[in-house]
Write a protein that binds this DNA or RNA. Sequence first.
DNA 1: CCATGTCAGATTGCATACGATTTAGACGTG
DNA 2: CACGTCTAAATCGTATGCAATCTGACATGG
Lengths: 237, 237
Amino acid sequence: MNISEKIILPEAAPEDRSGAIREAIRNAIIDRRLAPGTKLSEAEVGALFDVSRTVARAALQMLAFEGLVKTERNRGAFVSHPSPDEARQVFASRRLIEPGVVAEALDRMTPAEIEGFRRQLDEEARHMSERGPAARRAEIKASGDFHLMLASVSGNAILQKFMEELVARSSLVIALYGRSGISSCGHSEHSAILDALENKDGERAAALMIHHIDHIEADLDLQLKQGSGLKDALSLP
Amino acid sequence: MNISEKIILPEAAPEDRSGAIREAIRNAIIDRRLAPGTKLSEAEVGALFDVSRTVARAALQMLAFEGLVKTERNRGAFVSHPSPDEARQVFASRRLIEPGVVAEALDRMTPAEIEGFRRQLDEEARHMSERGPAARRAEIKASGDFHLMLASVSGNAILQKFMEELVARSSLVIALYGRSGISSCGHSEHSAILDALENKDGERAAALMIHHIDHIEADLDLQLKQGSGLKDALSLP
DNA sequence: CCATGTCAGATTGCATACGATTTAGACGTG
DNA sequence: CACGTCTAAATCGTATGCAATCTGACATGG
């Protein structure tokens, strides 16, 4: 899989170029324009964004740190290819963290933010009704964004960072092990969670969230099929 | 505050030198040989570990990513100086995550691992009984290690990584806002948690853990004293 | 005496150069 | 035809040089 043309970053970033590149690649990964296993060579990334290898490398290091990319010494960086076990860990972590996030969000959510959530859900619905791969990608992203918005209003920057990592890794996992085309079934669940939040029913919101995560994970096929057998069998021990 | 002599890294690291440097600095931060606010210049770090600025820079970037170091563009890297608000976020995150960690640890803990915990607690106690700053540092580190061991046996690498970040940041917070010399009071609580784990009483272990975290946080003085006012006031909005 | 403007030194951001390591393909041999 | 070896290209890891930026000191003017 190859990255297409030269990408022009959102202009307003004269500084922190590696951070901008990180986000661009990150987005490409979470909406699956970059498949797991894809090689990301420093030279290629550098050329693509028109920077030197130094800054491309920095971006890849950041991505490696948040688990979206795996680097092998003297071999390069590859889009992560999480094992079924890693996949389970991702969702175990989310089950642990997200109920707490909704609980903290409950107290701090302003009416304006509720309105923002509503708009977000509308957008989700809109993407769902559209056809085509672009709409699909947008839908995936929007679905993750719901969880990130929640983390954002929780007011805890650390948890927010953790959630960013977990949501991104979830995308990878779903790309690899997702059974139904998309775990889009989640939209109505998002709605229900928001309703519970609006009614200040924290118990229910947390329960719905856990249910939602269970639901996503249940849609995966985590039997260690994907391994063509050998390659992955030998990387475990 | 200056870093003293040249440091020789644990020999067995011919590869991943930046990772080794990261850990060395990390350790220096968590047992408070490096005070919050200390400047870490690329050249100085590089000279200290006898590497080029390139690899020193990589180490600093990693530390920045896990929140132990803050970099300001064109100004350099500094040991983080968490605000009271960040401090609260650290403990809020721990309160959220650690009960889950003990729950997962409960199921997977082997007798051998229990033995390991006992030894760890003995070491904690030993450091507590000794005098001198070196013993104090060892005690702080050992205290954090208890929590990290717990995360380790939980079998979830992602949570383990999160906990490493949180424990390290906690050290910074305690260094800044700790009231009593040390939050060493925690030792008996560690013991109690381990007892509960051994008795397979997950409820109690989780409750004790929360209590323990509350206890640590209660020992802090998080009134926003340190702000000389202006500098911090302007960095918020 | 304090405030403001200017300059030198220091430090970072980035690009590039070079050696080391890995990989792929050619080639010869059993 | 299969297999092992060797060479060459590609790619990474690291060091270093240069330009841009910041800090602090000093000079100047109010």
